[in-house]
Simulated scan of single mutants.
Amino acid sequence: MSLGKFLTSLTFFKQLFLAIVITVVFLFALIKFLDFRTNHGEEINVPDLSKMKLEVAEEKLDEDGLEVFLLDTVDFRPEFPPYTIVEQDPKPNSKVKDGRKIYVKLNAGGFSTVTMPDLINKTFRQAASTIRALGLVEGKSKYVPNIAKDVVLEISQNGKKLKAGDKILKNSTIDFVLGDGKELFKEEETDSLTQQLIDTTATN
């Protein structure tokens, strides 16, 4: 049979139709397989991992078909237990696909230490700004007679006097002893009274 007659024969068209059907079925099966592998159209609700230990979060996410990835450890936050998750991305209740990584940050095990700078003879405003920048807390201020007003004369923590170079924990409360700026005036008043007494004695 010549090629021309074969291409116009019923046998050719039957084989062509069969090939088309097989191709369509194969493509349909391939698409369904890919949809199954990628969970096409299916989304997972991201759980809230806040305050969870890392190993607990790993088990939880594994059950949901997700993964956890530790990014960093942050400075200690007292409102969270030590070594628990404080931040996550994506956020809780976000919709994600199966296999998505959830990025987390852990709380430190406790407050880190800072070195006390030299705050003596600094103004209270300067000292307060410095301790806040170090992660410390401004406590009580006590005024005592001194020529310099609002100048730091002494600093302490829980009644213990501190000096430059001391190591203390972040979030510690620092108390201040400040000058009231009145000592000069007291000295001037004393000198004036002394002079008045001398003048009175001389007149008598």
Rank of each mutant, 00 (worst) to 15 (best):
V24K: 04
V24C: 06
V25F: 12
F26G: 12
F28S: 10
L30K: 07
I31M: 10
I31E: 14
I31S: 13
K32S: 09
F33W: 12
L34D: 03
R37Y: 12
R37N: 12
T38I: 10
N39L: 13
N39H: 15
H40N: 14
G41P: 01
G41F: 04
E42Y: 04
E42G: 06
E43I: 10
I44G: 02
N45C: 13
V46W: 01
V46Y: 00
P47S: 01
P47V: 02
L49N: 00
L49C: 02
S50I: 06
K51Q: 08
M52Y: 13
L54I: 06
V56A: 15
V56R: 06
E58S: 03
E59M: 11
E59W: 13
K60M: 15
L61I: 03
D62C: 05
E63K: 14
E63I: 07
D64A: 15
G65W: 06
L66F: 12
L66R: 03
E67K: 15
E67M: 13
E67P: 04
V68H: 05
L70R: 00
L70T: 00
L70V: 04
L71M: 14
T73H: 00
D75S: 15
D75M: 12
D75T: 13
F76R: 00
F76I: 02
E79Q: 02
P81K: 01
P82Q: 11
P82F: 15
P82R: 01
Q88D: 07
D89Q: 14
D89C: 14
P90I: 10
K91F: 12
P92D: 03
N93F: 08
N93K: 08
N93T: 05
N93E: 11
N93D: 08
V96D: 04
K97H: 06
K97E: 04
D98G: 05
G99L: 07
R100A: 02
K101E: 12
K101H: 08
I102C: 01
I102D: 00
Y103F: 12
Y103C: 05
Y103P: 09
K105E: 06
N107W: 02
N107C: 06
A108V: 01
G109H: 11
G109P: 14
F111V: 11
F111D: 06
F111L: 13
S112P: 05
S112C: 07
T113N: 11
V114R: 02
D118R: 07
I120M: 01
N121W: 09
K122E: 11
T123E: 07
T123N: 05
F124L: 13
R125W: 04
Q126D: 13
A127K: 02
A128E: 08
S129H: 03
T130R: 07
I131E: 06
I131P: 02
R132H: 10
A133M: 11
L134C: 05
L136W: 10
L136Y: 07
L136E: 06
L136F: 11
V137P: 08
V137S: 07
G139A: 04
G139Y: 04
S141W: 07
